[in-house]
Design a protein around this nucleic acid. Structure first.
Length: 864
RNA sequence: GCCCCUGUGGCGGAAUUGGUAGACGCGACGGAUUCAAAAUCCGUUUCCGCAAGGAGUGUCAGUUCGAGUCUGACCAGGGGCACCA
C-alpha cells in the first residue's frame, strides 16, 4: 500500500500550474467567459504567515478554484499592504531600513503563500510602498483636492502620544489608540481631511443593497454613520448686543421638534464659540470651561461625570412664542462635535435634560403623553418619558401623535423662518494626515506666499528619502535635513514640503481597483479594466475591518466615480462580503510567567512542561493565534510535516467559516488520516478501470447505490460551497469517501461505478485540496490537469430514490417506519402505517382520530 | 443604558422550506492484526435503564397533528455603539 507523500507531490503540481500559467485572469482562454473577482483582504507584511492567516486565503482560494471550474474568468490577485508603523518600529529596534524590512518580509510571505498552493494571478502583485503604486495615490489625492473632497483645517484631533501621530476617529477605541493602546490626547492641529461626510447619505442608503454582506457588518456601518433625522431650530437672542457679536440666533439640532413646547433651557457645549467668548470676561464661566477641558475622555470618566453646567446669563426667545424667554446654559454633556454643539433641554422627554433640570431647578413640563397614560394624572418623577405618544400642553401640536407633530413643528419653523428639517450624522470627516515616515507622502508644498500648493502631476511621485533616522519618536521626515526644502511650484520661491504622510487606510481604499490593471502607468487603473472586473464579487476578510476599511473603500469608489476616474455603477466596491472566523490555539506560560509557543512545550507523563527547562507550564485561554501570545503554528513548519493540503483541509473543517476554529494536534492527525485514506481509496481502483469522467450507465444494485451516493454528494457539496458552508462540504466529502471505501465492486459494472464515483469525488475535492486532487486525477487516468476539468453535473435521475423510508409517528413520537414507493398514494401509505407493529402497540386502547400523511416525508397518527 | 448575535452529546458541530435530533470529525471504550508497539482495520459511544421503555436541543409558557427550527417572557455567553440631542 503506497502512502501519499505531499512533500513530493505538492511542488510538482505547483510547477505544473505555473507552467500552464493557469491562474492568469483575462488570459488567452478567457474569451467569452463571464468574470468573477475573488479577493481576500491583502496582508500587512509583518514577518511570517502562520496557520491562522492561512484560513482567510484558503477560503478565497476555494471560491476562486470552484468558480474557475464552473467556467468563469477568475481574477484572484494578491498584494501587500506595505506601509505602516511596524516597519518604523523594526527600523528603530533593529537598525534596518523600513523598506528593507518590508521587502524582506514580502519575499518570505510570498513563498509561503505559494507553498500553500493558492490559485493566484501573481502577475498582478502590488505593494503599496512601491512608488509605482503610491504615485497614483498621490494623483488621486490631487484629484480629491481639486474636487474639494480633500481639504486642510485646524481642528481638535486625536493625538497618540506613543506613536507620535494623529489618529482618525475610527482608530480610537475606548479613548485609546488602536495600535499603541495609549490614552489619546486632544490637540489642536492643522491637518488634512477627506470629506467623507459628503457621502454620509449615500453610504447609509447604499447599505440597503448589500444583501450579500453579513447583517452584522451592515448594522455596524449604519450605526457608525449614525444618521438622525430631525430639525435645526434657531432661537433668537434677546440681547441685541450679543446678537451683533454672535449672529441673531443660537442654532440647535433636535430629533424631537415635537417637544419644543417642553423647552426649559438651551445648553451649549463648553467649547462653543459663544461660551468661549463669554468666558473671556466672566470668571465663573471661565472656571467652568477650564474644568471641562481637564475632564478625561475615557469611557469610565464620562460615565461617572455628573451633569454639570453654568448659567451663561443670556436668554433666547422661543421660536413659537416671542414673549417666552428661555435661559441659556453651558453644560458638560453637550458635545461640540455633534449637530451644532448646542441643544434645547426638554427635561420631560430626555433623561440627561431631566437630571440637569432637577439639579439646577429648571422647569419640567411634560408634553408627550404615553399611550396608556391619563393627561390629568401623568407626571414626571426621576425618569423621563423618551418614547412617542400624544402631544399635549403644546398649543397647535396638541392631540397629534409624535410623528405627525414632528412634521407639523418643522412646517411651522419653516413658516417662521426659525428652522428647518435637518439630518445630522455621527460620522466625522476622515483625518488622513499622519506624522510618520513609512507612508505615502502628501503631494503638497507649503509656500509663504501661495499657501498650500499641490505638486503638479508631472512631478509625481513625491518619493520618500532613504536616508532617515529613527533615533527619536517624532516624524523622521520632519527631522530630515534637506528633504522638505523645495521650491514653490507656483511662484518658484523657496518653500517647504508637506511632511505628513497619508493614513495607510488610504492605500487599502483603492488597491482592489489597481489589481484590475496594475500595469497602468498614466492612471491609477484603466477605467475599462476597472469596469470589466468591478465590483469584487466575493471579498473575504476579518470582522475587525467591519467599519474602518470597508467604510473608507465604499467612500473611495464613490469619490473616484465623482472625480471622473471611472464609472462604477452603484458605487459599491464589494458585492459580496464574507467575514471569516479566526484560528485559535491554547496559550502557554512558563513558570516564570513568559509566553511559550506550542513548540516550546511538551507532554511528559501527562503533564505539560517547558522543553528547555523541564519546568511545569500553565495552560491559558484558547485565543486567536497571535505573535504576541506566541500561540502560533508556523505555516512552513506545518507544510513540512503534513503538506499544504492538510493545512487547507484543517482550517476548513469542523467549524463554520464565520466562526473560530481551534487548532489541535488531534484535529491535524485526523486530517492526515483522511488524506491517506482518500489516497488508498483512489489507489484501490484496479488498473484498466474506466476514466474519471466516465458514466457507469448500466450499474445495478450496490453499484447503482454508489453512483447515487456520488451524485447526491456532488449536489450537496456544490450547494455548500455556494452557501459558504465549507465545514458541511467537508463532512459531505467524508461521507462519500466512507461510502466508496466500503463498496467492493464484484464485476465490471461495479468497477465502472466506482470509477465514476471517484471521478466525481476528485473533481469535488480539487478546490479544497488541489494537490492531492491532481495526484488522484493523474492516477485515475484523467485527461490533462484536474484544474482544467469542468465541475461535474449531478444527474437529476440519480438524486431521487425509487423507494423512501417513512417514519411513522403516533402523537408526534416515532413508533415505526415503512418502506414505500416514491410518490405512493396516500391511502396506501395510511393503510401500511396503521398495520405496523409499532403503531399497534402505541395505539392499544386508543382510538385513531386522524392520520396525517406528508407525501414522501412522514406519517403522523393522532390517537386519543 | 441601547442595538445585534449565539445557547444542541465529553468536545467542534450537522439538521437550508416546521416532518426520523445528534450527520461528519475529535476524544473515549471494546476488538482484530502484532512477540510487542506505532500505523492500519472492524465495532460501540446523547442520557437513565439488564431490558421493555422513558427523557432530551439554556429555562418557562404558547401556536401546531408535529417545534432545535415559529411566537412571547426570562436566564447565560459574545459582539457593536454609548452623554449623539
Amino acid at each position: 500500500m503506497s502512502r501519499y507523500n505531499p512533500r513530493e507531490a505538492e511542488p510538482k503540481w505547483q510547477s505544473a500550474w505555473a507552467e500552464r500559467d493557469a491562474f492568469r485572469a483575462g488570459g488567452p482562454d478567457a474569451g467569452g467567459k463571464p468574470k468573477y473577482y475573488v479577493l481576500e483582504m491583502f496582508p500587512y507584511p509583518s514577518g511570517r504567515i502562520h496557520v491562522g492567516h492561512s484560513r482567510n486565503y484558503t477560503m478565497g482560494d476555494v471560491v476562486a478554484r470552484y468558480k474557475r471550474a464552473r467556467g468563469f474568468d477568475v481574477l484572484h490577485p494578491m498584494g501587500w499592504d506595505a506601509f505602516g508603523l511596524p516597519a518604523e518600529n523594526a527600523a528603530r529596534d533593529r537598525g534596518v531600513h523600513p523598506g528593507q524590512w518590508t521587502y524582506g518580509n514580502i519575499e518570505v510571505m510570498r513563498k509561503q503563500l505559494q507553498r500553500l498552493g493558492l490559485a493566484l494571478d501573481w502577475s498582478r502583485e502590488i505593494a503599496t510602498c512601491d512608488p509605482a503604486y503610491y504615485r497614483h495615490q498621490q494623483a488621486i489625492f490631487l484629484k480629491l483636492l481639486e474636487k474639494g473632497l480633500a481639504y486642510r483645517k485646524t481642528a481638535k484631533v486625536n493625538w497618540d502620544p506613543v506613536d507620535q501621530t494623529v489618529l482618525a476617529n475610527e482608530q480610537v477605541i475606548d479613548g485609546r489608540g488602536w495600535r499603541s493602546g495609549a490614552e489619546v490626547e486632544q490637540r489642536e492641529l492643522d491637518q488634512w481631511f477627506f470629506r467623507i461626510t459628503d457621502y454620509a447619505d449615500q453610504l447609509t442608503d447604499g447599505i440597503e443593497a448589500l444583501d450579500r454582506w453579513p447583517d452584522k457588518v451592515r448594522t455596524m456601518q449604519s450605526n457608525w454613520i449614525g444618521r438622525s433625522r430631525g430639525a435645526e431650530v434657531r432661537f433668537p437672542l434677546t440681547d441685541m448686543d450679543l446678537a451683533g457679536r454672535f449672529g441673531e440666533t443660537i442654532d440647535v439640532f433636535t430629533t424631537r421638534p415635537d417637544t419644543l413646547f417642553g423647552a426649559s433651557f438651551l445648553a451649549l457645549a463648553p467649547d462653543h464659540p459663544i461660551v468661549r467668548a463669554l468666558a473671556a470676561d466672566n470668571p465663573e464661566i471661565a472656571r467652568f470651561t477650564e474644568e471641562c477641558a481637564r475632564m478625561g475622555t475615557t469611557e469610565e470618566e464620562i460615565e461617572k461625570a455628573p451633569k454639570h453646567g453654568v448659567d451663561l446669563g443670556i436668554k433666547v426667545r422661543h421660536p413659537f412664542d416671542e414673549s417666552w424667554e428661555v435661559p441659556v446654559w453651558s453644560a458638560n454633556f453637550v458635545l461640540s462635535g455633534y449637530g451644532t454643539g448646542a441643544i434645547f433641554g426638554s427635561p420631560a422627554g430626555d433623561q440627561r435634560d431631566l437630571d440637569f433640570a432637577r439639579k439646577y431647578g429648571l422647569p419640567v413640563n411634560p408634553v408627550v403623553l404615553p399611550p396608556d397614560a391619563d393627561a390629568k394624572t401623568h407626571t414626571i418623577g426621576d425618569e423621563a418619558y423618551t418614547g412617542h405618544g400624544t402631544i399635549y400642553n403644546s398649543r397647535f401640536l396638541d392631540g397629534l401623535e409624535t410623528p405627525e407633530a414632528i412634521e407639523r413643528a418643522i412646517e411651522e419653523l419653516e413658516k417662521r423662518d426659525l428652522g428647518k428639517g435637518a439630518t445630522s450624522y455621527r460620522l466625522r470627516d476622515w483625518l488622513v494626515s499622519r506624522q510618520r515616515y513609512w507612508g505615502c507622502p502628501i503631494p503638497v508644498v507649503h509656500c509663504a506666499d501661495c499657501g498650500a500648493v499641490p505638486v503638479p502631476e508631472d512631478q509625481l511621485p513625491v518619493t520618500l528619502p532613504d536616508d532617515v533616522t529613527f533615533d527619536h519618536p517624532s516624524n523622521p521626515l520632519e527631522r530630515h535635513p534637506t528633504w522638505k526644502n523645495t521650491d514653490c511650484p507656483k511662484c518658484g520661491k523657496p518653500a517647504r514640503r508637506e511632511t505628513d504622510t497619508l493614513d495607510t487606510f488610504v492605500c487599502s481604499s483603492w488597491y482592489f481597483l489597481r489589481f484590475t490593471s496594475p500595469w497602468a502607468e498614466d492612471a491609477p487603473f484603466k477605467p475599462d479594466d476597472a469596469e470589466r472586473w468591478m465590483p469584487v464579487d466575493q471579498y473575504v476578510g476579518g470582522i475587525e475591518h467591519a467599519i474602518l476599511h470597508l467604510l473608507y473603500a465604499r467612500f473611495f469608489t464613490r469619490a473616484l466615480n465623482d472625480c471622473g476616474l471611472m464609472s462604477l455603477e452603484g458605487g459599491e466596491p464589494f458585492a459580496g462580503l464574507f467575514t471569516q472566523g479566526m484560528v485559535t490555539h491554547e496559550t502557554y506560560k512558563s513558570s516564570g510567567g513568559k509566553w511559550l509557543g506550542p513548540d516550546e512545550v511538551e507532554d511528559r507523563d501527562g503533564a505539560l512542561v517547558e522543553v528547555a527547562t523541564g519546568q511545569p507550564v500553565t495552560v491559558g485561554a484558547i485565543e486567536k493565534m497571535s505573535k504576541s501570545k506566541k500561540n502560533v503554528v508556523d505555516l512552513d513548519a506545518f507544510i513540512e510535516s503534513y503538506g499544504a493540503d492538510a493545512a487547507r483541509w484543517f482550517v476548513l473543517s469542523d467549524s463554520p467559516p464565520e466562526r473560530d476554529v481551534e487548532y489541535t494536534d488531534s484535529g491535524v492527525e485526523g486530517v492526515w488520516r483522511f488524506i491517506q485514506r482518500l489516497w488508498t481509496t483512489v489507489t484501490s481502483l484496479p488498473e484498466g478501470a474506466p476514466g474519471p469522467d466516465s458514466v457507469a450507465a448500466n450499474a445495478q444494485g450496490d453499484a447503482l447505490d454508489i453512483r447515487r451516493a456520488a451524485h447526491k454528494a456532488l449536489k450537496s457539496v456544490t450547494d455548500s460551497i455556494e452557501g459558504f458552508r465549507f465545514n458541511s462540504a467537508v463532512a459531505q466529502i467524508h461521507d462519500l469517501v466512507n461510502a466508496v471505501r466500503k463498496f467492493e465492486p464484484s464485476d465490471e459494472a461495479g468497477i465502472a461505478a466506482k470509477a465514476e464515483a471517484l471521478g466525481i469525488l476528485v473533481r469535488m475535492i480539487a478546490p479544497f485540496i488541489p494537490h492531492l486532487a491532481e495526484e488522484c486525477w493523474a492516477r485515475l487516468g484523467g485527461e490533462g490537469l484536474v484544474i482544467d476539468a469542468a465541475w461535474p453535473e449531478a444527474d437529476p435521475a440519480l438524486l431521487v430514490e425509487d423507494t423512501v423510508t417513512l417514519p411513522v409517528q403516533v402523537n408526534g413520537k416515532r413508533r415505526d417506519q415503512i418502506d414505500v414507493a416514491k410518490g405512493a398514494a396516500e391511502d396506501e401509505v395510511k393503510a401500511l402505517a396503521l398495520a405496523t407493529d409499532g403503531v399497534a402497540r402505541a395505539t392499544e386502547g386508543l382510538t385513531v382520530r386522524k392520520v396525517i400523511v406528508v407525501p414522501d416525508r412522514i406519517v403522523n397518527i393522532v390517537a386519543g
